[in-house]
């Protein structure tokens, strides 16, 4: 239900990480989503695809990894 807010945070953090590491284009980001974190992966993917435009993530793929508990973590970003 609040996946848009989560996607906004995620994109902000991924953009900051890309800047910190000098990546101009991010191809993929990896996120772990716990079974009890209250986030629906499909809805997060949809929100991400809508909100990523106009950033270094514009073409980025979102790779969601199932995790245990309440994990909700940006694990890595991949780009050049």
């Amino acid at each position: 239900m609040h996946e848009v807010g989560v996607a906004e945070c995620l994109i902000g953090q991924a953009v900051a990480a890309a800047g910190a590491h000098g990546l101009r284009r991010v191809a993929c980001i990896g996120v772990s989503v716990g079974t009890h974190c209250g986030v629906v992966p499909h809805a997060l993917g949809f929100a991400f695809s809508v909100l990523r435009g106009g950033t270094v993530l514009a073409d980025a793929r979102l790779e969601i990894m199932a995790a245990a508990g309440d994990a909700l973590r940006l694990e890595w970003i991949e780009g050049e």
Binding site: A17, L74, E75, I77
Partner: peptide, 9 residues
Amino acid sequence: MRVEVLERI
């Protein structure tokens, strides 16, 4: 290149 971030969203 892949960069580890490991941040709570």
